[in-house]
Amino acid sequence: MSKQNFYHLLDRYRSGDCTDKEKRLVEQWFAMLDEPVPVRSEQENSEIEERIWNAIMQNDTAEPVQPAVSFPMWRWAAAAVMLIGIAFGSYKAFYKNSNSRQVTSARQGESRISHSNQSQNEENITLPDGSTLILSPGSKISYPAGLAGKNRVLHLTGKAFFRISRDTERPFLVHSGEVVTKVLGTSFWVEGRENNTAIEVSVVSGKVSVSKNELTVGAENSKIKDGVILTANQRVKYSVQTHAFETGLIANPQPVNAAVTANVPAVEAFIFRDTPFTDVIAKLEKSFGVEIILENDAMKSCLFTADMTQEPLFTKLDLLCASVNASYEVRGTRILISGKGCSSPQ
């Protein structure tokens, strides 16, 4: 105990701001001097406080008034020493508890924001950096207050759609189970299965990296490894059992380069009249950002006529293949078209 702390506690006692434990402690100190605790002048208080301090430091007390019953001096000394020990121990215990509360408060200062969607509807949320997300029912997010830190880090349990504000200096990391998705600025879905057997990431626009967390708890400084790069219309599923990534295309790919008018994407025309297959495929690749491979070079000679403007990508492919008795399959993030082809322009 320092002298500064000693006087600080006495000041709190006089102002009535101390706890019951502190009050008993101060009154024990006054009892060491066999002094009552009346209201005194500032000078009188200073003199008595100095005497208490000296008694604590010297393990001594003022000479007690001789009691009516004989009480040997050594017992007075032992009682004084015991009282000082109790007082000092109580004081140390109080300040130890006080310091403990300050540490807890400091740790709590590093606060995290948590939010769960307990409704039956999707919930729109705006993050401190301007990014937005749509949180599905039963899902939960947490992140440092203000998204502070070298990276913008968010933890997700469940399913959410993200639109991330671009910041090249501070990537955005979404942790979901054993998987971390890293982006600069894009939009994508992240979904963790309820039983934690699989985690799926689907990209609507931009580019993301999806990797495995080397550490699954605490995650800001976790290392990431064994990842894949995804672009628009691509998805990846991570299996917790096999620790493997399986890439593919999303269920309904959308045009990635469509012009936007009044915040509404313009409908791109897909009208063909005796158009070579290679030109049709080139347009589909450019519009949807997917790679389409012709297994047979003879298919390059085929011509195609149709208006597929209103059809989704996979229906467009169905019509294209049906025109030449071909078929297609999705292999990872690419599409392979198989067929005999055409020997000469039709």
Rank of each mutant, 00 (worst) to 15 (best):
M1E: 15
Q4F: 10
F6D: 08
T19C: 15
D20R: 15
L25K: 07
Q28G: 14
D34C: 03
V37K: 03
R40H: 08
Q43W: 12
W53Y: 15
W53M: 15
N54H: 08
I56G: 03
T61F: 00
A62V: 00
F71L: 02
A80R: 02
Y95V: 03
S98E: 10
N99T: 09
S105R: 13
S105G: 12
G109Q: 07
H115L: 11
Q118K: 10
S119G: 12
E123Y: 06
G130Q: 07
S131H: 04
I134G: 05
P137L: 02
G149R: 05
L154C: 01
A160R: 00
F161G: 12
F172A: 00
G177Q: 03
E178W: 00
T181I: 01
T181G: 00
K182L: 04
T186W: 03
V203N: 00
K207Q: 09
S209H: 15
S211F: 06
N213D: 08
L215I: 13
L215S: 07
L215C: 11
V217T: 14
V217Y: 04
S222T: 02
V236H: 00
V240T: 04
I250A: 00
I250V: 14
V256T: 14
N257V: 15
T261H: 09
T275N: 06
N296F: 06
M299F: 09
L303S: 04
D307T: 07
Q310N: 08
E311M: 14
P312Y: 12
D318W: 06
C321S: 03
T333H: 07
I337Q: 03
I337S: 12
S343F: 09
